[in-house]
Amino acid sequence: MESTVLKIEDLSAYFSEERILKDVNLSILRKRVTAIMGPSGCGKTTLIRCINRMHELVPGAKVSGRVFLDGKDIYTMNPIIVRRKIGMVFQKPNPFPTMNIYDNVIAGYKLNGIKINRNEQDRIVEESLKKAALWDEVKDFLYRKGTFLSGGQQQRLCIARALAMQPEIILLDEPTSALDPKSTSHIEELISQLKKDVAIILVTHNIAQAARVSDFTAFLYLGELVEFGTSEKIFSVPEDKRTEEYLTGKFG
C-alpha cells in the first residue's frame, strides 16, 4: 500500500526577479526514499527548502504554487508547525555547539519550550540515537559536547535531532558532501534503515548515490523537473534525452 505524503503542485520559486524553479509537480510517497539530482545551481536545494518553508527566510525570496502535506497546503499553515513536521539535515553538520549530545537530540523540544518529563526525554533521546545508528558510539558520553564528534558522527547526530521531533518527512540536503567515503557509506546505510519509518527526500549531485539509495528519482535541470520515476527506470531507460546525457556525463 503506497500513499502520498507530500504533493507539490506548480511550484515556482524566485530570488528577487530570478526564477529558480519552474512549475515543479512532484509526489512523494510514504516510507520511500526520493532522490532529487541535477547539476549545481539547478534548484535542488531551493526545492527542498520550499518544502519546509526555509526558502522564504532569505530576503527577496518568493514562492508560488502549492505544497500539500497530508492533503493540507503548507503555505496556509504556520511555518513553525510545518518545520516541526518536516525535518531537515543540512550539507554541513551543524550540531548546537553550546549543547551536549543529549541536549542536541532533545533540542527540538527544549528550544520550543515543549514540556516533557525526564523519562520521556530519555526514551526519545535513546530511540532517536538508535535510529540514527549513533547510540552505541555515544551512549557513554551523552553529556559531552557534540562538537568533538567526527564529521560523520555529527551528521548522524543532526539526523537524530531531526528524528526526535517524529517528523513525517526528512529532507536531506546533500548530507554526505562534506564527509569522507566511510562516513558516507554509513549515512547511506542509515538512509535505507530510516525509510521504514519516514519519507526521505535526498538532494544529491552524486548520481551513484542516488542510484544506490533511492526508490524514486527526480532529475532537475535549470529549475525544471525533467523526469521523475522509479530509480530503476530512470537509471536504466531514461525517457528524456537530457536525463540520459546527464547520467552519461555529457554535462553537470
Partner: peptide, 20 residues
C-alpha cells in the same frame, strides 16, 4: 547554519535568537 538548524526544527525566531 546554526540559525538554520534551529529554525528548521520549528523553533520560533525569538527563541532561536535567545536560546541558540
Amino acid at each position: 547554519e546554526l540559525k538554520e538548524a534551529s529554525l528548521a526544527l520549528g523553533v520560533p525566531y525569538h527563541r532561536t535568537i535567545l536560546k541558540v
